[in-house]
């Protein structure tokens, strides 16, 4: 029957996403994560305005292992979203849409995000 030969759109359960597509959905996920991360930023800034004791509480939480894991995720999400966001701005100009160019940019984004995260933590710790 002709209806069985119709092309299907990529189905997420059987279609292996190419790296560019994985980075695309990661851009959205990091964006949502960073929005929740702003709670931490707002807490930090507000506590500082309330005073020394409140600020020390935030520092104690961020220095705990759960705080450090959150900050590690926060920093990588931030740098990934920053690097991939710059790639999106190039796309907005209509550049770098060719397959080999997107693949090269994928690598740049991943290495850039990892390097910036590593550099930040080397300076902090």
């Amino acid at each position: 029957m002709a209806t069985q030969n119709r092309p299907l759109s990529p189905h997420l359960q059987v279609y292996r996403l190419p790296l560019t597509a994985l980075l695309s959905i990661t851009h959205r996920m990091t964006g949502v994560g960073l929005t929740f991360g702003t709670l931490l930023l707002a807490w930090w800034v507000t506590a500082a305005a309330y005073g020394q004791a409140e600020y020390a509480q935030v520092q104690a939480f961020l220095g705990s292992w759960i705080g450090l894991i959150l900050l590690l995720g926060f920093s990588f999400a931030l740098f990934f979203h920053l690097c991939n966001g710059i790639r999106h701005l190039f796309w907005d100009f209509g550049s770098y849409f060719e397959l080999h160019e997107t693949r090269r940019a994928d690598i740049f984004v991943l290495i850039g995000a990892a390097a910036l995260t590593a550099a930040t933590w080397v300076m902090v710790l």
């Binding site: 702003t38 709670l39 930023l41 707002a42 800034v45 507000t46 500082a48 305005a49």
Partner: peptide
């Protein structure tokens, strides 16, 4: 709300 709270704090 969070933006205003943070800005007022700064």
């Amino acid at each position: 709300g969070l933006a205003t709270l943070s800005i007022v704090s700064i």
